[in-house]
């Protein structure tokens, strides 16, 4: 028996919007720790890891570890039927091949349930090693989204370079080149507007902008994004989900031939 009651149901709606275009089908794993997912895109270039900790749910019952295979597009269709202020409860019985999403309006005058078929998914679980990153950049998520969108109108790849001068995003395409430099800036009114750069040593890596733009669909989940870079490691683009956990996107670099 599984029953997870999320008062801030809009978080789940936003999570689905953030990952449904990257991943088609995925197993949601439910354990005492929380509700989690790890999945790669179809070309195995990017990986998404989601964790919503059990403490973040108003009610969290998970009698035994359960893995539920879902088509994310179909799940998104169902969650779109929930209002932004609705409380969402996820329910599943042991051995059932369906999951139920229950939506309650804030004043309890409307209750809806949507039952979705589960699917069997053979997914590979990858071990993500703890790593010391050469550079970690925290910046406003909207600023990062803007840069990725702007650069993708010029080129297909972005070179992200961190030096003591700041973080530079560069691209080149048929019509020309573009460089955006963000310097560390902690003299802002609100902490989420700051750009903070922790650099152990300079690093420069190249990534496909198509994936970066896909990751920025998580922007509504968090005011800030944290980007971790190391030579010869996938970049980590992390959006923290307030009080609950995180969504992390890993993207393998491109290497010049």
């Amino acid at each position: 028996m599984l029953e997870l009651r999320l008062v801030q149901g809009s978080l789940l709606k936003k999570v689905l919007e953030a990952i449904k275009d990257l991943v088609n089908d995925a197993n949601f794993d439910c354990s005492a720790t929380g509700f989690s997912l790890q999945a790669m895109d179809s070309s195995h270039v990017a990986l998404v890891a989601l964790l919503l900790r059990s403490e973040g749910f108003e009610h969290y019952r998970c009698d035994r570890n359960l893995s539920m295979g879902m088509n994310l597009n179909n799940m998104s269709k169902m969650l779109k039927c929930a209002g932004n202020d609705d409380i969402i409860t996820i329910k599943a019985d042991d051995g059932s091949d369906t999951v139920t999403f229950m939506f309650e309006s804030p004043n309890q005058d409307k209750i809806a349930d949507f039952e979705m078929k589960l699917m069997d998914i053979d997914s590979e679980h990858l071990g993500i090693p703890e790593a010391e990153y050469q550079a970690i950049v925290r910046m406003p998520s909207s600023e990062f989204a803007r840069i990725c969108k702007d650069l993708s109108s010029i080129g297909d790849t972005v070179v992200i370079s961190v030096t003591k001068e700041g973080v530079k995003f560069s691209t080149r395409g048929d019509i020309g080149t573009a460089n955006v430099v963000c310097r560390q800036n902690t003299t802002v009114d609100k902490p989420e507007e700051a750009t903070v750069i922790e650099m152990q040593e300079p690093v420069s890596l190249t990534f496909a902008l198509r994936y970066m733009n896909s990751f920025t669909k998580a922007t509504p989940l968090s005011g800030t994004v944290t980007i971790s870079l190391s030579s010869d490691l996938p970049i980590v683009v992390e959006y923290k989900i307030a009080e609950m956990g995180y969504i992390r996107f890993y993207l393998a670099p491109k290497i010049e031939d």
């Binding site: 270039v45 496909a208 996938p234 031939d257």
Partner: peptide, 14 residues
């Protein structure tokens, strides 16, 4: 030209 690596080059299956 550049080569796109895959995630499985860096992270191994459990």
């Amino acid at each position: 030209d550049s080569k796109q690596y895959t995630i499985t080059k860096f992270f191994s299956k459990i």
